[in-house]
């Protein structure tokens, strides 16, 4: 019998994978991928909670999250392309203009 806990554990594993990616990767594109992982992990969590409580709000939330992910990708990729045009690299370490 699969319970909510199973799903939430899965969510946690995926989420920490995403965080590892966010922290670890220096390729900006990979950063975007990792963000997608984070969002998807949360989506699973929402859908699971929705199922086990018999409440549709969770699914609606997932739906909106997908919409946000889509727009994030659109804008983010646009910016990334722009940055690549300027600097010729998508290395994160090249982005250090705000050094204190």
């Amino acid at each position: 019998m699969i319970t909510l806990t199973h799903y939430l554990t899965l969510t946690g594993i995926l989420f920490s994978l995403g965080i590892v990616g966010v922290l670890r990767r220096k390729n900006l594109l990979m950063l975007f991928f990792s963000t997608e992982i984070l969002l998807n992990a949360v989506n699973i969590g929402f859908a699971a909670v929705s199922k086990y409580y018999g409440d549709l709000s969770g699914q609606i939330f997932s739906f909106f999250i997908i919409a946000i992910a889509a727009s994030e990708v659109a804008v983010g990729l646009g910016l990334l392309v722009l940055w690549y045009k300027r600097s010729g690299t998508i290395d994160l370490d090249s982005l250090q203009m705000m050094k204190g």
Binding site: A70, S71, E72, A74, V75, L77, G78, L79, V81, L82, K85
Partner: peptide
């Protein structure tokens, strides 16, 4: 977001 993406990449 769509408009932004188009504008940003088009430059």
């Amino acid at each position: 977001a769509m408009i932004a993406g188009i504008v940003l990449v088009k430059v």
